[in-house]
Simulated scan of single mutants.
Amino acid sequence: MACYSAGWEYSVRRYLDGFSDAIVPANALPEQRVEAILDWMRQGPPRSAEPNPTGLAARDPETTLNYQQLLSVCGTATNAFLNLARSSDLQVRRLLLLSPDRSAKHVVAEVLLNARWIVVDPTYRIVMMLTRKELQTPQNFAEATGRIPGYPPAYNYDNFAHVRIARLPLDGLRLRSVLDRVIPGWDEKVDWSLLLERESFFVLTAAALATLFLFLFRLFLAWYSDQWLKMPRFRLRSHLVRAGAAFFTTPEIK
């Protein structure tokens, strides 16, 4: 499983590298790279249309980059932007805009430009040129969105998050409040975007954690067998050495 997921993630990264190389100039400045990606999203070549887009893999970059319906929805449009931006050596992360009841109402991206996390809205193909904190000021928000036709005023920055824990079954345990107290700023200290937006990376991470757990569990069983059960263990290494010696060594004939 780990080998399969590693190969899957590698192939996705190669695909994204080739895709971003085709639309982003090699020597472009970070701001120009952002605009190049948004220009492709605005005026790119004709894209496939699916009669039933609900069946499309929303977390597969090869799908989100090639279907018009997915590039028009905030979640998958932001995923497409983040994947291309990351392949263009930009530091980016996902930002969820939340309603007062903590449900997601819109998804945007943040790009690190000149040591500031600037908000980019891939759905509307626009760079706000302001941070989320600056956009919390009503005047700044009105100026930034006033030039965007039909931009909903409800997409404000009063409530936001990088990870929406409310979707997890453990939300009843108030996991977010616990993490906020124990590890302040935990959702910004780790780049959760890649784990949430790319299925291949999620599978790779899960496989790596499962492999690590099984390895540690095996060590525990070996220790328990030696220290408490006093049972002889099947030692794979010694058996392989003996098998190799028997296979490659010419037996003596007496």
Rank of each mutant, 00 (worst) to 15 (best):
R174E: 11
P169Q: 03
L173P: 15
F201Q: 10
R147G: 05
E134N: 01
F215Q: 07
D187A: 15
F141D: 03
I165R: 04
M128P: 00
D171P: 08
E199R: 09
F202L: 10
D191A: 02
G150N: 05
Y157M: 09
T137C: 00
A210S: 11
I148Y: 01
V163K: 05
A161L: 12
R176D: 00
R174G: 10
A161F: 09
L168Y: 15
L170C: 00
K189A: 12
E143Q: 03
A161D: 15
G172P: 02
E188T: 14
P149A: 14
L216I: 10
A206Q: 06
G172A: 13
P152V: 08
W192C: 00
E143P: 06
Y151D: 01
L214Y: 08
V127I: 07
E134T: 07
P152Q: 02
S177M: 12
Q139K: 04
D158W: 14
E134Q: 14
L195E: 10
G146T: 12
A154G: 00
E143V: 07
A207C: 01
R132W: 10
N159Y: 10
E143F: 05
A154T: 04
V163C: 04
P169D: 13
L216V: 11
A210F: 07
N159M: 05
L179V: 15
D180W: 03
D187G: 11
V127T: 09
T137L: 10
L170V: 09
F201G: 14
Y157I: 12
R198L: 06
G146H: 05
L179G: 11
T145G: 07
T137V: 07
F141C: 12
H162A: 09
Y155C: 11
V163G: 02
T137M: 07
R198K: 11
V163P: 02
A144Y: 15
F160G: 00
N156T: 03
A166L: 11
P184L: 03
L130A: 04
A154C: 06
E197N: 15
F202H: 02
R132A: 08
D191F: 06
D171H: 04
T211L: 12
